[in-house]
Design a protein around this nucleic acid. Structure first.
Length: 416
RNA sequence: GUGGGUGUAGCUCAGUCGGUAGAGCACCAGGUUGUGGCCCUGGUGGCCGCGGGUUCAAGUCCCGUCACUCACCCCA
């Protein structure tokens, strides 16, 4: 038997209805807030991700599906969406007509990690980006949209965590201070953090090893090292969140694993996913578009883990299953051909009709009608045809009535 | 890449001391010549993850391997 690839999965009928519901809700919300859909390719040149996400990140170093195409050019299955959206913005000079753009995109991403709960090698993200706005209110709008979406999907166990990472002005100074602190306390750090403290000291901040957490108490806080401009930005974010009644927690240890983030970062965390508690995350990336060769353009955005969201939304799911409006039970080959014509006609009218293609007893057809949840059943046998009529049975009330054949199509359409 | 747990019917799982492979649910059929849910009866469905070893005999014991899963790591 051929099995699917490790870390990949099928989304089967029964689960897919929930995915459709989430997608529908998200699209409606984005459109209400002025976001336009953008569809970007699944593959890009490898250098796009190396430049944007950062050569030294885990994603680029060891998680990307990268391979040479038939002419030897290195291409990569996208591990995230923001890089492509920026590339597209630059390539098509979307800033020319209107420098301010709001985009959303939904689709699969690929990272070759060890699979576990809420983490797959092909996973889906819902992304939103606001490009061309440096106002903190853009960051706030994104967080507001996120929480609104979760609320509309009846996901309750979520909390917003925010932080600021500073900018090229103030972050280097903080890194120096942090490195100094780490050097003095490196004896108590785990082996990973000892390695990280030179290459990417910010990452030590969110290490989960208990020894590291205690060692890091008293570590310098990025929030104490923000330059005046970054500090003002962060203050406005907090103030605006309060003004629109969005509860949040400032988490000075919240760090992002992608190099392009600046200033505001945020994460929506849940207690229902075990170790993978981030159901959405994002932040500002003011330097990225310039770094990719575009004009100096501020931007901010987020990504929602669709699979993770589906998992926690599933806890509160209502029944999305579709049931047929009518099930047609035909007896005999001739009658089956006749009702097949009716079924096709009703399908065009938007009436969900179902029937058996094979030769089945009436009893077994009634059982199937019941299993499918059909609201009514049309019984068409030789006895009925002889009398020029068919039987319509209401499955809830068990009441049956006779309908003249020439009125059937019209009758069903008007009843449904 | 590193650990732990689990692999037996479509699903959830039993399987004793090593002795012919089981249940519930689901599915199909019959009980009712042409009427669903409940009930009764019967039926379909298994390389017991895979490979090797011990043994008269292995689902069971031993070794290896693979898969799934949770966690580390990382992230959405």
């Amino acid at each position: 038997m051929i099995q699917l690839i490790k870390g990949f999965k099928d989304i089967l009928p029964g689960e897919v209805e929930l995915w459709q519901e989430i997608e529908k809700t998200a699209r409606a919300l984005f459109e209400d807030f002025g976001f336009k859909e953008i569809r970007i390719p699944i593959m890009e040149r490898t250098e796009l991700f190396a430049k944007s996400i950062g050569e030294d990140t885990d994603i680029v170093e060891k998680e990307m599906y990268t391979f040479p195409d038939r002419k030897g050019e290195l291409i990569t299955l996208r591990p995230e969406a923001t890089a492509s959206v920026c590339r597209s913005y630059i390539q098509h000079k979307l800033y020319a007509k209107d420098p301010v753009r709001k985009f959303y995109t939904i689709g699969p991403m690929f990272r070759r990690e060890r699979p576990q709960k809420g983490r797959y090698r092909q996973f889906y993200q819902i992304n939103a980006e606001i490009i061309g706005v440096d106002s903190p209110l853009a960051d706030v709008e994104l967080i507001f949209i996120l929480l609104t979406l979760f609320s509309r999907l009846s996901v309750s166990d979520v909390a917003a965590h925010i932080n600021s990472l500073g900018c090229p002005e103030c972050r280097p100074e903080f890194k120096t201070a942090l490195s100094g602190f780490l050097t003095s306390s490196s004896g108590n750090l785990c082996s990973d953090c000892v390695r990280r403290k030179d290459r990417n000291p910010l990452r030590v901040l969110d290490c989960k090893v208990p020894a590291c957490r205690t060692a890091m108490t008293g570590a310098p806080s990025i929030l104490d090292h923000l330059c005046p401009a970054c500090n003002e930005h962060f203050e406005i974010v907090k103030g605006a969140l309060k003004a629109i009644n969005v509860p949040f927690t400032v988490d000075k240890k919240l760090v992002r694993g992608l190099d392009y983030y600046t200033r505001t970062t945020f994460e929506i965390q849940t207690g229902e996913l075990g170790a993978q508690n981030a159901v959405a995350g994002g932040g500002r990336y003011d330097g990225l578009i310039k770094a990719l060769g575009g004009p100096d353009t501020p931007a901010t955005g987020f990504a929602i883990g669709f699979d993770r969201l589906a998992e926690i939304a599933d806890l509160n799911r209502t029944d999305f299953a579709q049931t047929p409006d009518i099930y047609i039970a035909a007896l005999g080959e001739k009658n089956r051909s006749l009702v097949f014509e009716w079924k096709c006609a009703w399908g065009l009218e938007g009436i969900k009709a179902d029937m058996e293609f094979g030769d089945k007893s009436l009893k077994s057809q009634m059982k199937r009608a019941h299993r499918l949840g059909a609201k009514q059943v049309l019984i068409v046998g030789d006895n009925e045809i002889k009398q020029g009529a068919v039987i319509l049975r209401d499955m809830t009330t068990k009441v049956q009535m006779s309908i003249p054949i020439e009125d059937v199509v019209e009758k069903i359409i008007e009843r449904s």
